[in-house]
């Protein structure tokens, strides 16, 4: 199960430019009361662009990317020579830590950023969800240090 103490100590650091962080948080705030989600594009390991995306589930408790929008964003990322850098979503009322649902549905092999709106200011943490098979229901949560450049 996913308790805050279970995450492995970070050995990886995700450097987030302030403007990227602020835009991601703004998108999450704008999505309330529902969860919000999106993708960060990276170039040479640095995050360069926030893609604000639709929560197709329209739920305060769950999110899913709209497949057609996801496809369009992936194409845009490839077209600019960028890479999929991270996936982000908000937790509106709980801590920035992967829920069992986050673990169960984790797919892409990139850091998953979680923006918690439970407190002010919002908190941002990142994790990798490590699973032997991507369809496994459970996995290992490994925290990624987040360093915001201000």
């Amino acid at each position: 199960m996913s308790e805050a103490g279970d995450a492995k100590e970070p050995t990886e650091t995700l450097i987030l430019p302030a403007e990227i962080t602020d835009e991601m948080i703004e998108h999450c705030r704008a999505g309330r009361p529902n969860e919000a989600c999106g993708i960060l594009a990276s170039q040479d390991g640095g995050m360069v662009k926030v893609f604000r995306m639709t929560n197709a589930t329209l739920s305060p408790l769950r999110y899913s990317l709209d497949p057609k929008e996801q496809f369009a964003v992936y194409r845009a990322i490839e077209g600019r020579g960028w890479e999929l850098g991270a996936v982000f979503h908000s937790h509106t009322h709980t801590e920035a830590y992967p829920s069992p649902t986050d673990v169960r549905l984790a797919s892409e092999d990139v850091p998953y950023l979680i923006v918690s709106l439970a407190d002010e200011p919002p908190s941002v943490r990142a994790f990798r969800i490590l699973k032997a098979n991507w369809t496994d229901q459970e996995g290992e949560i490994k925290e990624v240090s987040v360093s915001v450049l201000r």
Partner: peptide, 12 residues
Amino acid sequence: VSILPSVAGGQA
């Protein structure tokens, strides 16, 4: 041909 995994989750 592009293969895309669903991306989803949530706090509950």
